[in-house]
Amino acid sequence: MGKIKLRNIKVFSYHGCLDEEGKIGSDYRVDLTVKGDLSHSAKTDSLADTIDYVHLNKIVKEEMAIRAKLLETVAERILNRVLDELLLVQKVKVGVSKINPPLGGDVGMVTVYRSKSR
């Protein structure tokens, strides 16, 4: 078993329940961890035999571009696409963070964590 982490993927997007969030947008951070068998790719040294982190990053960016009211919804879409498109992934965990959320206080970020396994 092996693990691949993509940390601090920075995205500007338009998620949130407030109308203003859909118009103004905000900065987001996504952290993604996947687990799978990387022993074969370690021997073959072939991209075709591993979990492609470029593909993982593409999924995150595409799903973050689709507006949602809740971070939970975006996280679920990311999880589902990773498991659907990358068959070597056995488990995936994602954290979607809104930087400086409009909470009426000094909060650096709020994060929703979700995970899924095959």
Rank of each mutant, 00 (worst) to 15 (best):
T44N: 05
S97Y: 12
E85V: 04
A75W: 12
V54P: 00
Y28M: 02
K61Q: 15
L79E: 11
E20M: 08
V34D: 01
L56F: 10
L103K: 03
T33D: 07
I9N: 04
I66T: 10
D49M: 00
S26Y: 01
S13E: 01
A68T: 11
H40N: 08
I9G: 05
A42C: 14
G2Y: 05
M109V: 03
L32P: 05
H40T: 08
K23T: 07
V107T: 13
K69M: 07
H15N: 03
I9W: 02
L88F: 10
K58D: 13
L83E: 00
I78S: 12
R29Y: 02
V60F: 04
R81N: 11
V82T: 09
G95P: 05
G104S: 11
I78G: 12
P102H: 08
H15D: 01
Y113R: 11
K58L: 06
P102D: 02
S115I: 02
E21T: 04
S41I: 04
R81F: 09
P102T: 11
L103M: 14
Y53A: 06
D45Q: 00
G108L: 02
D27T: 03
K116S: 12
S97E: 09
Y113N: 14
S26M: 00
K93W: 09
L56V: 08
V82G: 08
I78Q: 12
S115W: 15
A42N: 09
K23D: 08
G25T: 05
R7I: 00
G104D: 05
R29W: 02
V30N: 04
A75C: 11
F12G: 05
L83P: 00
V107S: 01
V110T: 10
G108N: 11
V82Q: 11
N57D: 14
R67G: 05
L47M: 09
G2W: 01
L103Y: 04
A68S: 15
I66V: 15
E85R: 09
V34H: 01
L79K: 08
R81L: 13
G104C: 08
A65W: 07
Y53L: 06
P101W: 04
A68D: 12
I24N: 03
Y53V: 03
K23G: 06
D106I: 15
R67T: 09
L47N: 01
Q90V: 06
T44A: 04
D84F: 02
D106P: 05
G104H: 09
V107I: 15
I99D: 01
K61M: 12
H55L: 09
L18C: 06
S41M: 10
G25V: 05
M109Y: 13
D52M: 10
G36T: 03
E63F: 02
A75L: 11
A48Y: 03
L56Y: 05
E72T: 00
A42F: 07
K43D: 09
M64E: 02
N100S: 13
S115E: 15
T73V: 14
L32W: 00
T50S: 14
D52T: 11
E72W: 08
S115G: 11
S39W: 00
E85Q: 15
I59S: 08
V34Y: 00
K98C: 00
R7M: 06
Y53T: 09
I9E: 02
V11W: 08
G2K: 03
K3C: 07
L79T: 06
D31L: 06
E20Y: 02
E63N: 14
K58H: 13
G105N: 03
L6R: 04
M1L: 09
G22R: 13
